[in-house]
């Protein structure tokens, strides 16, 4: 089933339009690097001219607050609801594709496609950045430097962490997708959750619930660029994501196991 999902994605024009759009986003900070250091903006943006590896990282970081949740919301929100509105869901269930197996395959397919998007952003950023700014040992946020090879590994690790951060959101999107027959509805609801979580994470009055917000751990990968690496933030982030994923995926499985397919 995962293979079918990926095959469907590959044969869709929109997949390649998205890939083109993401490549454009990755290139913007390389073509228009910041002129002042320390002017704010996304993490690592002001370091981009120092090393092409940062360009790869920045490419992913600039899509993380909005475009990545948007893509995750689109893929997960339409996963079941989109099949329902196309009518293909009834043929998949009658095939019979087990209901729970279908949802788990959809989850795997969403995560694979988000992983492909992140990998693509890293690749485009890395190539463009290394051409414009060159590669070399990476300065850390703590003032030390990491050798190029180890720095590359940390950039990849950042991508993996950012991917894991989307697992909770994908599970929420899949739950919405099992409840409604409207793909756009589920997508909008999922993106709204991501945005609401980030807004709440910035309201100091809500600081008591900050540690439990979906997006709270999303930026903890920055600790990979400290020396020594501070793991506790990322450990909490992964744990939080695991809980969100387990809870919402379980709810989604519960719903799809009982729902009447009337579309």
């Amino acid at each position: 089933m995962l293979r079918v999902e990926l095959g469907k994605a590959i044969h869709r024009v929109r997949t390649w339009v998205f890939a083109l759009g993401l490549a454009g986003l990755a290139l913007i900070p390389v073509i228009f690097p910041p002129t002042d250091v320390g002017q704010g903006g996304p993490p690592f943006l002001d370091l981009i001219t120092r090393n092409g590896l940062f360009a790869a990282l920045v490419a992913v970081v600039i899509v993380q607050p909005f475009f990545l949740p948007l893509g995750t919301g689109l893929l997960s929100g339409e996963a079941i609801a989109g099949e329902a509105s196309a009518g293909t869901l009834r043929y998949l269930i009658a095939r019979p594709t087990g209901r729970r197996r279908l949802l788990l395959s959809k989850f795997a397919a969403v995560m694979t496609q988000v992983a492909a998007a992140i990998g693509w952003l890293l690749l485009v950023g890395l190539i463009a950045g290394s051409i414009r700014f060159g590669l070399g040992p990476l300065p850390t946020l703590s003032g030390t430097t990491i050798p190029t090879g180890a720095a590359f590994v940390r950039v990849i690790a950042s991508g993996v962490y950012i991917l894991l951060g989307m697992a909770g959101l994908a599970s929420i999107g899949l739950l919405f997708s099992t409840i409604t027959n409207s793909g756009p509805g589920a997508t909008v609801a999922t993106v709204a959750v991501a945005i609401a979580s980030q807004i709440m994470d910035n309201l100091s009055a809500l600081h008591a619930i900050h540690p439990y917000l979906l997006s709270h751990g999303w930026l903890a990968f920055a600790d990979l660029f400290r020396s020594p690496v501070a793991w506790d933030g990322m450990e909490r982030g992964v744990l939080l994501m695991a809980v969100y994923t387990a809870v919402f995926l379980a709810l989604g499985l519960w719903v799809i196991s009982r729902r009447d397919i009337t579309s």
């Binding site: 089933m1 079918v4 095959g7 469907k8 196309a86 009834r90 998949l92 095939r95 594709t97």
Partner: peptide, 19 residues
């Protein structure tokens, strides 16, 4: 009901591989 963006043959293939 089919995946409109796929060919008839590929639809049959994907429904087959789905389970």
């Amino acid at each position: 009901a089919f995946w409109m963006y796929l060919s008839g043959r590929r639809n049959l293939e994907y429904f087959t591989r789905a389970a």
